[in-house]
């Protein structure tokens, strides 16, 4: 299953929907994570906040390939995309394990294949390095075998890289 998360706006929805099995539009119309751990300890894989991200971890967790398209924000995802990821921690369970020589949570949905990040917007060499480290760390944390970062000079290149 291929899942795309993007913050490009509704004008890109149609094109991206045709290229994946599930698409999450990071439009910012949802609340940030409250850090309550309720999606681990109270109502597993479900957030107590009743908005479009209530069960988002159940979609992201099933991805074999996850593609994140985000504007650069200091070498990290845009706030709208990061909000989606913050609200999806129940793709893992509260139990801990060792992965990539560090402590992480065990995976609710098992291992995944590809973690791909496509970023656009003004970016410095330092921010590029941060993005690469972050994607690598995210891939280990979420149990992906491979990670890749693609930096777009222009959004016109998007269709070519999102095969």
């Amino acid at each position: 299953m291929k899942v795309i998360i993007h913050d490009l706006g509704i004008e890109y929805d149609k094109m991206l929907q045709d290229k994946c099995d599930a698409m999450i539009s990071a439009d910012g119309k949802y609340a940030p994570c409250q850090g309550c751990f309720g999606c681990w300890t109270k109502h597993p894989a479900e957030c107590f906040m009743k908005d479009s991200l209530k069960e988002v971890c159940r979609v992201i967790g099933r991805a074999d390939e996850l593609v994140i398209i985000s504007e650069n924000c200091y070498g990290a995802y845009s706030p709208a995309v990061k909000n989606v990821l913050d609200r999806s921690i129940a793709t893992s369970t509260p139990m801990s394990t060792y992965r990539g020589k560090q402590m992480h949570h065990t995976l609710r949905y098992g291992k995944h294949e590809m973690f791909k990040v496509i970023t656009y917007g003004d970016i410095t060499p330092e921010e590029k390095a941060t993005f690469e480290l972050m994607a690598e760390r995210n891939a280990i944390n979420d149990g992906y075998e491979k990670s890749e970062v693609i930096i777009l000079k222009s959004l016109n290149e998007l269709e070519d890289v999102i095969v």
């Binding site: 940030p32 994570c33 850090g35 924000c73 200091y74 990290a76 995802y77 845009s78 706030p79 709208a80 990061k82 909000n83 990821l85 913050d86 921690i89 972050m134 760390r137 995210n138 944390n141």
Partner: peptide, 12 residues
């Protein structure tokens, strides 16, 4: 707090 290896969205 550290959220998903980075800065929480509301802080960003």
């Amino acid at each position: 707090p550290l959220y998903v290896d980075g800065v929480p969205s509301h802080v960003l």
